[in-house]
Structure formats: C-alpha cells, structure tokens
C-alpha cells in the first residue's frame, strides 16, 4: 500500500483560492481601474449629450449566443473618416475639442412635424433608451458584437409623421472642418450622407444609438446620435446626425457617389455577393482568437434574415448590392 504523508508546507486542495475567485479579483481590479478612469473622464461623461438616460435591457434583442466585443475595442477601432482614414485616428482626433453637446438635429422634408430639436429632448420624447445587442459587420470583412443603447428609428419616424409621398429617409452627418481634420481633406464628399427606404427605416431592427454599454456614445463612435441597421454593412450607419430628411426619390449615399462599383445603396450583408476586391463569405471576429485571430462564416443579412428578408423579396440582390 502506498501511503503519502503531506509535508507541513503542503496545503490541501481545499485551501487553494478557487480559479473563479482569483479571476474575479482581476475583474475587480480592472473595474477599480475603469472606475478611476471613469472618474477622470467624468466631466465629459456626465456632460455628454444622451448622458442620464438609464438604459433598460431589451430582452428580445439579447441573444445569449452573442458575446459582446470589449468596450475598449468598440471605442478604439473605428472608421470615421471625418477624423482620419486610419482606424486608430478617430479616438484621439474626435476628442480634441470637438463639441457634441449641446446638439441639435433637424427633422425635415415630406413630414407633418418638421422640427429642430435638442438631442436630449429628442431622447426624452422617444421615451428614453433601451439596450439591444446587435451583430456589427463592416464591409471590410470584420465584425463585432455591440450593446447599443438608444431608441427604435420607427418611433422617430412616427413622431416626424411622414406624408404619403415620403418614400426614403436620409441622414446627414455634421459638417465642421474646423473640428474634424478629415473634413479639411477631400477624402470624401462632405458631409457624409446616408439613406434608407421607408420600409427599411420602419423595420423593428432600425435603431438610433445614443450609447454603448450603457454609457453615452463616445465621439469616435458617432456621438450623440447614430444610425444602426444591423443587417447592413457598417458604412450605412450614419454618425453624428444633424439632419433627417424625408424624400420621395432614392438618395445617392456618400460611398455610392464615391465608388458605385464597390458600394451600393442597399449594402445588405450578403456572403454570396463579393466586394470587387475581397470575399464577403467570411469575416474576422475582432478581439477573438488571440494574436492570430479567428474568422467565422458571414450570415445572410448578418443573421437577421428572419426579420428583413421580406423587404427584398423578388429583388436581384446581386445587382442591388
């Protein structure tokens, strides 16, 4: 029989700190760090437009299978050409004195209730903010999962009360070359301009984001009001909106005007229709898989086929990309 007599310094397994507690300690330290950072940033955070709208999680839009990307990555890896063409550019450049509060947005065009309204007043009128976790797919074949706070676009449209002739909704981004270094270059035709068909805009998924992870949406992510249409490529998500115009004819969005061969009006996520320079069949998952990263298959309409496929029945999606 083999007998083992533990040495005095050997601790029983039961004395070991459970891994979860150990990891939790790290989380606590991290939270403390975040807290300190939040405190340092508090003046901006508290003053920010759309601050002070406690978010209610909308359980209908919280798929437990979706693992949200870290706040850090969502707010530091951005395409926002107004503040530079590199993905690391917007975070520093959009926080060098560019004021996103107070903020006025104009509802105009073929509507019964044209109005210029403060962004905070608008959020109040929309009944405050709710949180939805959506997939995000960039046309450059990378993806994130983002907990957006905000309100359904359909509420805003009902508030604007469109006339029957209004068939499209357009979104115009701010234009302020003094604050936005990118707008002092001819990189794009400023201001950035996007649009949706009315039935797309009225879809349950269409959303106006005012926050991320329950905090006011940072400047680099398109403060204070940003369009979110999760079944479309990211460039459709007009940022820092100053004007929502209801029109009768299909608008020409900025990227379509720039490069119609590569970017269309619909920009629906579609693994079967390639970009001229790369495949859209799969995507890099940001923040997953370590240094070498990982790729996953892209889903039709970014996984929202059940909700939106009906909008495009009978349409040739190869031609209407």
């Amino acid at each position: 029989m083999h007998l083992r007599f533990p040495k005095a310094w050997e601790l029983p397994e039961s004395a070991a700190t459970p891994e979860s507690a150990y990891l939790n300690r790290r989380a606590i330290l991290k939270t403390l760090g975040l807290g300190a950072a939040a405190l340092a940033l508090a003046p901006r955070g508290l003053r920010a437009t759309t601050a002070g709208f406690p978010t209610r999680v909308n359980a209908d839009y919280r798929d437990p299978a979706l693992k949200p990307t870290s706040y850090e990555l969502i707010t530091s890896y951005n395409n926002f050409y107004e503040f530079g063409t590199g993905k690391e550019d917007p975070k520093p450049n959009a926080n060098r004195g560019w004021k996103t509060e107070p903020w006025t947005v104009e509802l105009t065009g073929l509507i019964n209730n044209p109005i210029k309204i403060d962004a905070n007043d608008l959020v109040t009128k929309m009944g405050g903010a709710e949180q939805r976790v959506y997939r995000f797919r960039c046309v450059e074949a990378w993806s994130m999962v983002i907990p957006w706070d905000g309100f359904p676009l359909s509420k805003l449209i009902k508030f604007a009360d469109p006339k029957p002739e209004a068939k499209f909704v357009t979104f115009t981004t701010f234009n302020d070359p003094k604050s936005a270094p990118g707008q002092r270059t001819g990189a794009l035709d400023w201001p950035y301009f996007e649009g949706l068909r009315m039935d797309e805009a009225m879809n349950d998924l269409s959303f106006i984001a005012t926050g991320i992870y329950g905090r006011p949406i940072p400047n680099q992510n398109g403060a204070p009001l940003r369009l979110v249409v999760p079944w479309k490529y990211g460039f459709k998500y007009g940022k820092s909106i100053v004007k929502i115009d209801f029109v009768a004819k299909e608008p020409v969005n900025t990227w379509k005007a720039m490069q119609a061969r590569e970017y269309g009006f619909y920009a629906n996520v579609n693994p079967m229709v390639d970009h001229p320079r790369w495949s859209q069949a799969s995507e890099r998952v940001i923040g997953a898989g370590g240094a070498f990263g990982t790729r996953q298959k892209t889903l039709m309409f970014n996984g929202y086929e059940a909700q939106v496929a009906g909008l495009y029945r009978g349409m040739d999606l190869r031609r209407n990309y």
């Binding site: 390639d274 001229p276 320079r277 790369w278 495949s279 069949a281 799969s282 890099r284 070498f292 990263g293 790729r295 996953q296 298959k297």
Partner: peptide, 21 residues
C-alpha cells in the same frame, strides 16, 4: 494566407482571383 484561413482555404481561392490580389 493565415488571415483568410477560416477552417479551409475557400475564401483564399475566391479572393486570389480578384485583380487586386
């Protein structure tokens, strides 16, 4: 090659035929 690897090289073959690549 590593960047487009998604369990197979299907994406690689599709992309390599595009003029840019």
């Amino acid at each position: 090659l590593l960047h487009v690897y998604d369990g197979g090289f299907g994406t690689f073959w599709k992309e390599i035929q595009k003029p840019f690549q």
